[in-house]
Design a protein around this nucleic acid. Structure first.
Lengths: 124, 124
DNA sequence: TACAGTTTTTACAATCTTTTTACAAACAAA
DNA sequence: TTTGTTTGTAAAAAGATTGTAAAAACTGTA
């Protein structure tokens, strides 16, 4: 009836290690809170909206920065780098580089040999 | 039956160091009484109503000042500053700045290693 | 009006975010 | 392996937002 984006203040992404709120700058990696800047939040949000799919550089630059083709900048790469850092230690597995195309967010997939691993809750 | 706010003259906030009465301009920080002005009281009350959550600047400016978007003012910042002062020495830990978004009130949490310590649950 | 307290504005400092720069590293094609 | 292209990275520069002191404007009351 409405596009989910416009009518869903509860929109969230969640998997094994990451929690992302599309309407708040705060996210969680495991149980650690991570505050994102606005650009970081927009970028991760767009990748998450297309989780599993390649999002081309041009698309990212256009939708988040309003840049048209032919603009030469490294700002996207720098933001990707900061995001990966904040998603430590999962940054590189979550955000894949597709050389010559763009980036792709991949939902967390359990490494082999650790089937069904779930973090234990332990007092510290 | 009624929204709590409208039918609850007893509504209060309390934690380790702060006592706040939603219907009275006087509050307590530890054993010291603190008199709040009406704007200060409204501002702290709104933050407390959303304790733990980010409240955006626009929301604060709209609900307390009736300002719409695009109004350029520093009055919110000045009020935050006075509140933090009155909440000394907890002002900065209670009232967090979320850069680019707004403010967030955080309930007091006992530092680790102190008496009265209650185990936190942490993933391992 | 004068006063005392409250609130807003002003002007600038401090801090945080974003973009650019300059170069290194990784990749693809031949 | 060489060459040209793309992406990664640290650091600096530029831009935007928030913090702050002080002054001005406002509010209610006597």
């Amino acid at each position: 009836m409405f596009p989910a984006r416009l009518n869903n203040p509860e929109k969230k992404y969640q998997d094994q290690h990451l929690f992302f709120d599309f309407h708040n700058l705060s996210a969680y990696v495991d149980l650690r809170e991570v505050l994102l800047t606005r650009k970081e939040h927009a970028l991760l949000g767009l990748l998450l909206d297309n989780a599993g799919e390649i999002v081309r550089r041009e698309i990212l630059l256009e939708k988040i920065w309003g840049y048209g083709r032919g603009i030469r900048t490294r700002t996207l790469d720098v933001h990707i780098r900061r995001l990966r850092k904040k998603l430590f230690p999962y940054g590189d597995t979550y955000i894949e580089t597709i050389f010559g195309a763009g980036y792709r967010f991949q939902r967390y997939r359990e490494p082999r040999g650790y089937p069904n691993y779930v973090p234990e809750l332990v007092a510290v």
